[in-house]
Amino acid sequence: MKAASPDTVLVVHPGAELYGSDRVLLGSVTGLIREGWRVVVVLPAPGPLVAALTAERAEVEFAPQFVLRKRLLRPRGWGELLTTAAKGVIGAWGALRRHSPSVVLVNTITIPVWPLVARLRRVPTVVHVHEGESQARPWLKRVLYAPLLAAQRIIVNSRFSLAVMADSFACLAARSQVILNAVPGPETVTPPRPELVPGPRLAYIGRLSPRKGVDLIVSALRLLRDAGRPATLDLYGAVFPGYEWYEAELLSLIHSSDLTDAVTLHGFVDDVWPGLSAADIVVVPSRLDEPFGNTAVEGILAARPVVVSETSGLREATHGYATAFGVPAGSADALATAVARIADSWDAILPGLEPARAEAIHRHDPAAYGRAVAQVVAETAGPIGAAHTSTRDAVSFRA
């Protein structure tokens, strides 16, 4: 094995889009570079994330990745599992040999070969956990979290995610640190409309998937309009490959509900702020537990009230904000009722939007987040990382 390359962090990520964990990765890389690290990011394929990374002076390369999908754990997926796992091990081994980094940062638990291969090559490893699979079967959770046993340090995005992980392997909590996600706000904020005339404009930003409950917003919109409230809905996001059937079902629901003129599908958007500026209320209707709620925080940063499902991560992300309203998960009726109450209380809600925005800026400051991640990486790197250890405050807390 070659000697470690001083000041190099090899960062690994399973995709190249610009959704939640992708943007958090960008914040991690930015923080590392600002603390003086050379950063090489390994991705499986090109995508919009690449330009954002290179703009921050990160080096980007592509290598085969083994991304653990639940379908691969079924008997019919075992062949693909073995094939892609072998390719992933070869890709990881080659990247580690080429760069001989002083530390590896693995972003998400879905690329499990990296902590194992790094351990074999004696490279210190940090894993950043964005997942909180609380509803998975116990054996599956243990499979998902077992590779973390090979990591020296673990960053977790919420207390909820930490609790789910520790439920599988209690020993992982001792090497873990919760660091709240960085969520950059808009450069300028468009003030909310003083009156919701003719009706509220709803917005959803994120993946179009059954887990995210996008169809629930459509059903809630139908209920609002049936009640005489001329609300509209803008959807910003696209389906994950393989879920095209859900988009077809969503379009069918919109058509059958006579909402074609009230719902606009914009597809994936790189810049979320114009859409949030055009909205009155942001809705995050996830059916299942979310490890955190970046889009809910983005709504607060845009000075808009948000309606969120009362799942653990979303509840944690919006705790303490007077302009965030929780509803039972999976209920279109509850979503419609919450939107109607916000519209009826609009004058009382408006004064609280700016204080909530100021608090969100403080909690999710990108600079503080970047320093916190860089601190963990530097500590994991040992003597080599001493020169990159920041003494400034960071928005983080020990597990």
Rank of each mutant, 00 (worst) to 15 (best):
A381C: 12
G199S: 12
H364S: 09
A279F: 04
R371C: 01
P291M: 07
W245Q: 03
P186V: 00
A231I: 06
T337G: 05
G77F: 03
P184Q: 13
V327S: 02
R287Q: 08
L73N: 06
G326L: 13
L259A: 00
Y19W: 13
G275M: 01
A358N: 14
A278V: 01
E359M: 11
A170M: 07
R98K: 14
A334S: 11
P101G: 09
L116C: 07
G20I: 10
R222L: 12
R211I: 14
D393A: 15
R137S: 15
R76D: 13
V113I: 09
V127G: 03
V178G: 06
T108S: 15
P230H: 03
V126G: 08
R76E: 14
G242Y: 01
D234N: 04
L276E: 05
Q65R: 14
V189K: 10
Q375E: 09
H130V: 09
V263P: 02
K212F: 06
L202D: 06
V183Q: 04
G242W: 07
K212L: 05
E187W: 09
G330F: 08
R74G: 02
E359K: 14
G31Y: 00
E316K: 06
Q152R: 15
V123T: 06
T30I: 12
A203I: 15
V12Y: 09
S134I: 08
T232E: 09
G213T: 14
G352Y: 02
H388F: 10
S158P: 02
A170H: 10
G36D: 02
G91Y: 00
I349M: 12
A85H: 04
A358L: 15
V214P: 08
Y246V: 04
V9K: 06
G132S: 11
S158E: 00
R287C: 04
D289L: 07
A381M: 08
R23Y: 06
G267E: 10
A374R: 03
R229M: 15
L233E: 00
H266Y: 15
K87S: 13
F292E: 02
R315M: 12
S257C: 08
L32Y: 05
R98D: 05
A146V: 08
A166D: 10
V143H: 02
S176W: 11
I111G: 03
R392G: 14
V12G: 04
P274C: 04
E17F: 11
A238V: 05
P230Y: 00
M165Q: 03
T190W: 10
D393Q: 14
